[in-house]
Amino acid sequence: MPLDRAGLTSRETCTRSHGYPAGCPNIGVHRFDITVNCDPYLRARARLSGMTSRPTDLPDFASPPIGEVSLGVQFNSLEGLLAPHLGLIWADFRASFPLLEQHPPLLPVFETFTNGGTPSLIPQLQILTSVPTPRVFFINSDRTELLQVQRDRFHHNWRKVAEGVEYPRFEKMLGTFEAGLTHLTKVIADIGLGQIVPNQCELTYVNHLTVPAGTKQSDIFAALLKPWLKAPMLSDLGAAEDGRVMLRYIIRDKAKAPIGRLTIGAEPARKLDGTDIVQMTLVARGKPKGDALGDVSEFLKLGRRHIVKSFDEITSPEMHKIWGKK
């Protein structure tokens, strides 16, 4: 369905009652301008529709091998938020995200730094509570986009559910994320649960790099990535059976202070249809400069810059041709 300038489809469905005994008179499919007046989340999305443009200096691919993208923020835990509140929150997102799933909550993650480098390898901290408040997915009708909400996180994901589905691009996803977070902040305040205070931002790109036909297992990384990574042949054992890559880089602000990390992981995997791939996951995570929505967005934009540039720098020119580098 075509999008108008506000990023809305030209016809949307209102499913809310708005206090009318017989339901909202706009129930049913109608023009978006009426719908905007009905649905709080869509109103927020329309208000924030000034989509930022793609930076011209970033590498661009016509067909990037992206399988999933997630924009997220972790905030100080809203201990008063209980499962029933998630239902109240969903009511405002339901028109755009009508499907619902429930999952265990994600644990908090923080990027901290010392000049000593690698931290101790320690188990994840688990704090057991009798009834953990769940993480809920609000999913759109074609299951390509979702919002995740839990006590201390808000995420917006896009995922490639079938070949031919086009990645909507970061700028549009950021618009959806900002509108969602803005409206969530308002709902949380209206319910009386407090304020959202962001403490970490997180941007994730999951890429599915299809292994070129005829490539030996030992040469997969060399074929997909630049020649810096080629598993050595051992005199007794020959070629490596497979391997994994994990790289971490520190993200710094203008004053060179560490504010986050870029983590790049690559490992062999197999799609549901049996196709061999290398799954490359790039995660930019760190502390926003302040508590405002603009600070969260700024970190996500910075993370996107580092992810796109590093992806371009570590993947091979041969693969760039396949992905249609402009």
Binding site: L106, P119, I122
Partner: peptide, 26 residues
């Protein structure tokens, strides 16, 4: 999420994604 519960160093991989292809951490 389950796969990454074991070791915090590895959770820098995307814990919030839903891609089924992610597997156990190193």
């Amino acid at each position: 999420a389950q796969a990454l519960d074991q070791w915090s160093w590895s959770d820098s991989i995307a814990a919030q994604t839903i891609d089924a292809a992610l597997r156990a951490p190193m």
